[in-house]
Every structure is written in structure tokens, then in C-alpha cells.
Simulated assay, not measured.
Amino acid sequence: MTAPHLPPSMRVLERGWLSSNNILFLGREQTALVDSGYLNHAAQTVALVAHGLQGRPLDRLLNTHLHSDHCGGNAALQQAWRCHTSIPAGQAAQVRSWDRDALSYNGTGQQCAPFSFDDTLQAGDQLTLGDMQWQVLAAAGHDPHSLIFYCQEHGILISADALWENGFGVIFPELDGESGFAEARATLELIATLDVRLVIPGHGAPFSGVAAALDTAFSRLAYLAADPQRNAQNAIKVLLKFLLLERQQIKLTEVPAMLASLPLAAAANRRYLQRSVADLSEWAVAQLLRAGAAEIRDGFLYNRH
């Protein structure tokens, strides 16, 4: 979609709740893409990027963080263009050895095709994307290694899952008993110091109401931190939705076993909720139905987009 005040060298390929937005840069000398979406959508990602490139090759691929919905298209893009790939420095060893546990894919039950990388990104780095200068900033909270990109000249922030128009991504470290709320607050406070006029979030449409979005995010963070059970509940709902995205339909009687098989969901339940698996599953299904993200027909839970 075309966002207000988006420079002509940028394109935002807006995806969905479970596949991250892709930000395409068409510089005079180099093209680049930030984030690549989920594995199930990789073929579509390649097609969308190819259309946006208008016959040019994809020279560079960068990831804000390595959750599966942000890097699941990496391997397909590398196969299509052999693009130079940059990932957060904190996860270089995990990608090099393809440690699915450390990369969270086993814990969440999500898929990501193995990919390689050429160099790493860390806070303080300077990037040239779309003939514009970007600062790399640390954005821990949702993920300890997450990064965001800021262009001071145009007041644009690529915020990944650190800030959405109506919140932010699940604070995953807290599910394992690690600190995440304090880091998320520090990230929001950092964003508040920047002269941001346009935010390109990891999910959802670009937006310009930055002050209102920050107010919403701070309020939501305080709500979650006041009772970590709320963060755990949100995470389990999201994890079930990912399972449904993978399979498109799940027999209702199989939902409890599927949730129980996810180490991260089991850990969150054990630490914060302490519900029976049957009760937890019934609750999670009800949440997806209420959100319009699923429907029940003939004893099956079906995915709804």
C-alpha cells in the first residue's frame, strides 16, 4: 500500500497478522528488503518482491529479528536472488548452527527454512537503504535481539514488533521467566525521544499518529506487567493461531494435545496460568472465535484470515 509521505524509493508490502510486512527499497545503486514474512507465504513473498523490483535483482535482505514470521521467506529470497543477508548480531551463532531451540521455532511449533547470512547488524550501525541513511537501534522486549531502523531525515521508523498502531508483539521472554516488560518499556521510551512522523510496523498499515500509538503501547504494557497472566494468555492464543495457520483445520479433540506439545505454551501455562490442558484449550479456542480468527464446523476448528 502507499503510506502518507512515503519516499518514492520505498514500498511497503503490507501482509497480515501472522506474516510480517516487507519493506522494499529501490535505491539508485542497490535494492533491499527488510523482513520476509512467514514460510507458508514464501512463494507469495517472492512474487510480490519480484513485482516491486520491476526487473531489478534483490541485492540485500535484512531482518529486524528472527521470529519465523519475519524471516520465513529468507531461504526462498536467497534462492531467487542470492541476496546479501544481514541478521541481528546476537543470533549469528544460532543461525550458523541452525539451533531451532535457541531460535524459538521448536518452542513455538513454527516453521522456518534454514537460511544463511553474510553479515550482522547491531545497535549503532548506519545503513543506506533507498538512498536514505538509517540508524540501527536496539529494541529488546518482544525479542531480546530485536532491532528497529530509524531515518532521521524523513522521520520514518521501521518499528518491527516493538510498536504497532494498537500495541506491540507478545513479550516472549516473560513466558520463560526472563525479563521483558522492563526492556519493552525502555524501547518505547527510546522511540518517544525520536522525531518520528511515520511508523512502518511489523504488522498492520503504516501510521502517522505516533504519540497516540505510544500512549496505547505504554498503557497496554502497564496492563500486562500488572498481571503477567495476561501476557501468557495472549501468547497462547497467538501460538494456537499459528498452528491453525499451518494446518488450516484442526480437529477440536486434537487441540489440547497440540497445545501441550508446544514447550513455550506449556511453560507459560505452568508458570502463570496453571490450567488443565483441556480448560486452556477450550479458552484459547473461544478467544480465536471471539476475534473472528477461526470458526468451528463439523467438529473442526478452521482458520479464518
Rank of each mutant, 00 (worst) to 15 (best):
W134R: 03
Q122V: 10
L163A: 04
H142C: 14
L61G: 02
T128N: 09
G55C: 06
W134Y: 11
E183P: 00
V170G: 02
L163Y: 10
S276T: 15
P7M: 10
L24Q: 05
E189A: 02
A286V: 01
W81C: 10
Q229E: 11
Q79S: 09
A138Y: 02
V285C: 02
D227W: 03
P206V: 04
F181A: 07
T216N: 13
S9N: 09
T128H: 07
A232K: 07
L188F: 13
F242C: 09
A212M: 08
L6C: 02
W98E: 11
N166V: 08
L188A: 09
S9Y: 06
L264N: 12
W283C: 08
L26M: 15
L188K: 09
S281H: 02
A217M: 07
Q152A: 15
R56V: 08
D69H: 11
W134G: 03
L157S: 04
S36Q: 08
S36R: 08
A294G: 00
K241T: 05
I87T: 11
Q249I: 00
R96M: 10
R230M: 02
S104F: 13
H305I: 09
L129K: 05
T2N: 14
W283R: 12
L13A: 05
V34Y: 01
L198P: 00
A92E: 04
D279H: 12
P263R: 04
R82W: 03
R28V: 13
Q287Y: 03
F300R: 00
A47M: 06
L280K: 11
H154G: 11
E29M: 08
T64E: 01
Q30R: 15
G202W: 04
S219N: 10
W17Q: 02
N40E: 07
R60F: 07
G109Q: 00
A222Q: 12
G167D: 05
H305M: 05
A260C: 10
D195W: 02
S146A: 15
A284D: 04
P228L: 05
A211L: 03
P228R: 01
T2F: 11
A123W: 01
Q133A: 15
D227A: 13
A235R: 02
Y105W: 03
V49D: 09
V196M: 01
G180C: 05
Q44Y: 04
L13I: 15
F149Q: 07
D101K: 08
H67G: 13
T2H: 14
S208W: 01
D161Y: 12
Q274R: 14
A213I: 01
R271I: 01
A192F: 04
A284S: 15
Q248C: 05
Q249N: 01
N40M: 05
P57C: 03
R56T: 10
P57W: 01
A192W: 05
K251Q: 06
V46G: 07
A232W: 02
Q94Y: 12
R297D: 00
I148D: 00
